[in-house]
Design a protein around this nucleic acid. Structure first.
Length: 895
RNA sequence: GGGGCGGUAGCUCAGCUGGCUAGAGCGCUGCGUUCACAUCGCAGAAGUCGGGGGUUCGAGUCCCUCCCGCCCCACCA
């Protein structure tokens, strides 16, 4: 029966077909859905909603694998694990995509008008919006798809509206004219965080402004944006700057423009920088804006929304793009002899995070959220350790941002998004902010017009952990699943999203939205560059899934993702990048394929405690127990890499390389029924156990093989555990010591074979003496296994190793000696060399051990167990040393 | 200008609270295909843990300093 199954399994693991079949089965059974009414000890993750425009990239692959590992792990541990999926409407990004599509038809958004355009975006979303959701399924994500949400659906829009109104009523939302970051290409305001500052090699222009009423005298100002001088309304010096104190109060004549502007004194000016005189453009620079307020200066905005020069500037510059205008201004200044000099200047300037256009700081009437009152509780939660970051260093970054938080510009001059719920009365100017759309002015009954702008995308995302659960309604879902537990995301959206969610959760629900924030590393290419569309160095996760399977990809990612570190993959050599995972899947496959014919449903049900365990069984059970504890602890602490590595080493190096090899003959019944039963029982138990340990990381192959174990069917699943919980009673140091020495013996014999070029097929006789108790026990239990693995024809126990006979010598750590007679083939010189080398190494170790133990500081101050370990080490080293000395003496005489 | 991260084998990286002879995978060298796996097995070579100083009985691990990469934040025009 089981034999026939094993024949179905080919010698190579081929994930294609298997994965989708298994996933469909899970879906059909509704295995990922958790109803609030049945929830037990919920464990909840809200997915970072990918943009609807997104296609899966490796960053998603990594992040969602990690979340799925956590969800599966907790689900197997018996908790109601619920993972809320969904997508983000991604205001700017999505509008851009659709505008590009329109452009190909030769249309602009204004050709359609607002309503048709938004209609068009919805069509696009309906058509492509679920792409990434389908892709997440391919990599095995077990989201509760029934709960899939979209930041622009009715429920979430309601939450956004409620929040806007509440904050407005509380005085935390206001409208005002301030300098914001303006993207001239997207033609919208951006938040501070949405302007990415990068160092750029620019120029610093030193320009002479002639003093009014004093011909031939100038002041020199420095600027990196000469075109903004068209909007200058003052020139400023530091109030204590001796050099210019006499100038304060006089006027200069603004070149090219011709208006007179005052020279003022302001603290902000740094007398050390440049000439110590600064031009003041209140409408185009945040500092100048502040200076302007202090000195009641006029604000002259010289640009249109697309950053071309507007009517406020002299005719010669109108209509020019800001960079053309810059060149023209510089040329004209030079011609007038007013350009004193130009120098190279490295400075950092903002770029639009969506289209990379250089943003223009610009005066603009926008809506803002007052952040400080929201930040305070968010800071306290962190300081009281109710909110934890992994790795914890991100806590500092969070704290710094929260402490220096600035108001949030939330209005966007776009059409795609949540319309700002504000109406302006056309008659009396009354401003209405309302939960329900009003039709007449409440004050005068006049006509109303709604604010044309929409809200920042993040203004809906920051509500995600509770808006997805039905807030502001008081739903069962909300009461059951909020707060969520873990948030996993990339560090770059710590401010955009994570920090703001914390603030929103505390403000609107009075409770943190999650307790643990996991910030994973960045996926990079072989040269260490971040993977990106523009560099074309990305890896398509679906291609990897097609080539090697989702399990191989997941294992590789998890294995590479040590907490807080970036991971490097080679986009030009996928095989080398994902080989680890692929090979491991194949190893698992073959281990099970080997085991299947020997185990039965009864073996699987029987407890190892109910059979006559032999040493090898006790050893693997002990190791299994230790590994399970370690892996469980690692997963609970977000140390995915450790968990993956621990189980990998156990499965490959201990279970496959040693346990399976040792029990082969027992499984065939060569050592009697009782022995066979113990082996089959232990094997079944441990095998299924580690399949479960691996399930969160490699869900498909483990589920597939798990369902092929005897007595198991497609109706069974690993999804709901149980998570392995081997008895602590199985920990057996004695067995680990004995089998450990057995492995040491076999390895040494293999080493000698290799060193002496003994034909691998040839069986040899060896002798052992001074055999330790542990090895005695191991040999009693596994002599035939040793004979097979080391290819021995005989293993003779002697009182002493024969002296003077030609052969190879070795001493194990315990002091056990072994001798391989090499009649006729031995090379005496070679053996002397080998012994000398061993002696030298031992001498070094022994010297260090003795030095330590001779130092009373060490024996008195170090913990007793450390001292004890050191003594044991010295004892072992001395014993081996002495034995080897004897060998050397014996060889000295041998000819 | 602040803040942070990294520098461990040829390559990519582990090494969490200081304590067995510093590990893994890949690569490399040699050997090995009779029954789970060549996507394999066995054995091997390979490391001044970036440099220097300090704390300690003991430092890859803690402190200082320097060098070399990288990142984040910041209103030096």
């Amino acid at each position: 029966m089981s034999d026939s199954i094993s024949h179905e399994l080919s010698s190579r693991y081929d994930p294609s077909g298997i994965e989708s079949q298994i996933y469909d089965r899970w879906l059909q059974r509704g295995d990922f859905h958790v109803a609030a009414t049945d929830a037990f000890d919920p464990y909840v993750i809200a997915i970072p909603p990918p943009n609807v425009t997104a296609a899966l990239h490796m960053g998603h692959g990594l992040n969602n694998t990690l979340q799925d590992v956590l969800i599966r792990f907790e689900r197997m541990r018996g908790r109601s694990a619920m993972w809320i999926p969904g997508t983000d409407h991604a205001g700017i990004a999505t509008q851009n995509v659709v505008e590009r599509e329109l452009a190909r038809e030769g249309l602009g958004r204004s050709d359609l008008g607002r309503e048709l355009f938004v209609e068009r975006v919805w069509q696009w979303v309906d058509r492509y919006g679920s792409t990434i959701i389908e892709q997440l399924k391919k990599i095995g994500c077990t989201c509760d798809w029934d709960r899939t949400r979209f930041t622009l659906d009715d429920g979430l829009s309601g939450a956004v509206r409620e929040v806007f109104v509440r904050l407005y009523e509380k005085g935390l939302i206001y409208r005002g004219n301030y300098i914001i970051n303006w993207c001239p290409r997207c033609r919208t305001a951006l938040a501070n965080e949405e302007a990415e500052h990068r160092e750029v090699e620019g120029k610093l222009y030193h320009v002479r402004y002639p003093l009014a009423e004093e011909h031939g005298r100038f002041v020199t100002v420095a600027t990196t944006r000469p075109e903004t001088m068209l909007g200058d309304t003052a020139v400023a010096v530091h109030p204590e700057d001796e050099r210019y104190i006499d100038l304060v109060g006089r006027d200069v004549e603004l070149p090219l423009v011709g208006r007179s502007i005052p020279i003022i004194a302001d603290e902000h000016v740094d007398p050390e920088f440049g000439s110590g005189i600064v031009k003041v453009t209140p409408a185009h620079d945040p500092n100048d804006f502040e200076i302007g307020l202090r000195h009641d200066l006029e604000q002259v905005d010289v640009m249109h929304g697309d950053a071309s020069i507007n009517q406020s500037a002299p005719a010669a510059y109108r209509g020019l793009d800001r960079f053309e205008a810059r060149q023209r201004v510089v040329d004209d200044l030079r011609e007038l002899g007013l350009l004193e000099r130009m120098e190279e200047h490295l400075h950092s300037i903002g770029h639009c995070y969506r289209c990379d256009t250089i943003v223009e700081p610009r005066l603009s009437l926008q809506w803002f959220v007052r952040m400080q009152p929201l930040a305070e509780p968010a800071l306290v939660a962190y300081r009281e350790s109710r909110l934890r970051f992994h790795p914890d260093r991100f806590g500092n970054i969070y704290e710094h941002w929260m402490t220096n938080v600035r108001d949030w510009c939330i209005s966007r001059q776009l059409w795609w998004g949540h319309r700002i719920p504000v109406w302006y009365c056309q008659e009396c100017g009354e401003i209405l902010v309302a939960r329900e759309d009003p039709d007449k002015c409440g004050a005068c009954g006049g006509e109303l017009e709604q604010d044309p702008d929409v809200l920042d995308t993040w203004f809906s995302s920051w509500l995600w952990p509770f808006s997805t659960l039905g807030w502001p309604e008081d739903t069962v879902d909300l009461r059951t699943f909020y707060p969520t537990n873990t948030l996993s995301t990339a560090p770059e959206i710590l401010f955009f999203w994570v920090a703001r969610m914390v603030m929103a959760g505390l403000e609107f629900l009075g409770e943190l939205p999650f307790t643990d924030v996991l910030l994973h590393g960045t996926v990079r290419d072989a040269r260490g560059r971040r993977m990106s569309k523009s560099l074309g160095n990305g890896i398509d996760p679906l291609e990897v899934v097609d080539l090697f399977g989702a399990d191989a990809m997941r294992y590789t990612l998890v294995n590479a993702a040590a907490l807080g570190t970036d991971i490097q993959l080679d986009n030009e050599d996928l095989e080398s990048s994902f080989r680890v995972g692929r090979n491991f899947a194949n190893k698992i496959w073959n281990a099970v394929r080997f085991a299947l014919p020997y185990i039965s449903a009864e073996d699987l049900e029987r407890s190892p405690d109910d059979v006559a365990l032999e040493l090898t069984d006790r050893w693997i059970l002990s190791r299994y127990s230790a590994v399970t504890a370690a892996a469980t602890d690692s997963l609970a602490r977000f140390r995915f890499h450790d968990a993956a590595e621990t189980v990998y080493q156990f499965v490959w190096s201990e279970f496959c390389d040693w346990y399976l090899e040792l029990v082969k003959e027992r499984l065939r019944g060569d050592r009697g029924e009782a022995s066979r039963l113990a082996a089959a029982t232990t094997l079944s138990h441990v095998l299924e156990g580690w399949l479960r340990l691996l399930h969160p990381i490699m869900p498909f192959i483990t589920e597939h093989l798990g369902c092929h174990l005897p007595g198991r069917t497609d109706g069974d699943t690993m999804l709901f555990g149980p998570w392995p919980a081997p008895s602590r009673e199985w920990r057996d140091e004695r067995a680990e010591e004995a089998v450990g020495e057995l492995m040491e013996l076999i390895s040494l014999l293999r080493n000698l074979r290799s060193e002496y070029s003994i034909d691998p097929g040839r069986q040899i006789d060896i002798s052992v003496a001074s055999v330790s108790d542990a090895l005695t026990e191991a040999l009693a239990a596994e002599e035939s296994g040793v004979n097979r693995l080391a290819r021995l024809s005989a293993l003779r126990r002697e009182d002493a190793i024969p002296e003077g006979e030609p052969g190879a010598h070795g001493v194990l750590r315990s002091g056990t000696e072994l001798f391989v007679p090499l009649r006729g083939v031995v090379d005496l010189d070679r053996e002397r060399e080998r012994i000398a080398a061993d002696l030298e190494k031992l001498e070094g170790l022994l010297r260090r051990a003795r030095q330590r133990l001779d130092d009373p500081n060490f024996t008195e101050r170090a913990p007793t167990e450390v001292v004890e370990r050191e003594r044991e080490k010295r004892r072992s080293l001395e014993e081996r040393y002495v034995r080897l000395l004897e060998k050397r003496a014996a060889f000295a005489e041998a000819r």
